[in-house]
Amino acid sequence: MSALASDVGTRTAVAARDLVKVYGKGDTAVRALDGVGVAFAAGQFTAIMGPSGSGKSTLMHCLAGLDTVDSGSVHIGQSEITRLSDRDLTKLRRDRVGFVFQAFNLLPTLTAEQNILLGLELAGRKPDQVWFDTIVDTVGLRDRLRHKPTELSGGQQQRVACARALVSKPEVVFADEPTGNLDSRSGAEVLDFLRMSVRKFGQTVIMVTHDPVAASYADRVVLMADGHLAGEIANPTADSVLAALRHLGA
């Protein structure tokens, strides 16, 4: 923990260089990413923001190795993931990356506990019981472990998803609109947990959101517009983010 904490702000966890991603062909081609270069420091909570169609989700998918890029490169730690085969990408996702999605985060057939441990099982790794207990207690799901997702509230489901993302101690957690489907109270719980994981455990978190309040939980906000980087805000507040967005929208 202390080792991680000392890295804060000094080491780069994820870096993208000259990323280009084009959807479609010919006249209908859309340059979703048009030469994006950005770096994310380890142990930081970064939010990517921008209007609809700005390319923020595409950027995250490319950073996480979920989607291929047309040119440019992405590094996670020392590995250039844009060169990896599907098999190696799968392995990378399994071992070094955690995900939290907007909805449909959990397998309906598995209990909360099984869902949390699914990634580790896929990787064939033994869960670290102390770490597992720490996370479960932090998200406050101790008494819900044996429940199926349909028996949990939306906020609880999302906290299970967060626990699953963290339990494998990934180098980086990507969160795609994690509060998009939640009411503001449940959303705040999830965001609190994500911020705490950064503060307490030195976790690196990259979150895509369109909600200025959610973004205000982050250490840094990266703004996007039309496939380009459009600026950034350090130590954002809801108001400063809103102001920046209004500027972008105009």
């Binding site: 397998l107 309906p108 990787a123």
Partner: peptide, 16 residues
């Protein structure tokens, strides 16, 4: 489809 995609995202290989 979404579930399969989630599993893939979590590290299930195509073969698996």
């Amino acid at each position: 489809t979404r579930e399969s995609a989630l599993l893939r995202a979590l590290g299930l290989t195509r073969g698996q």
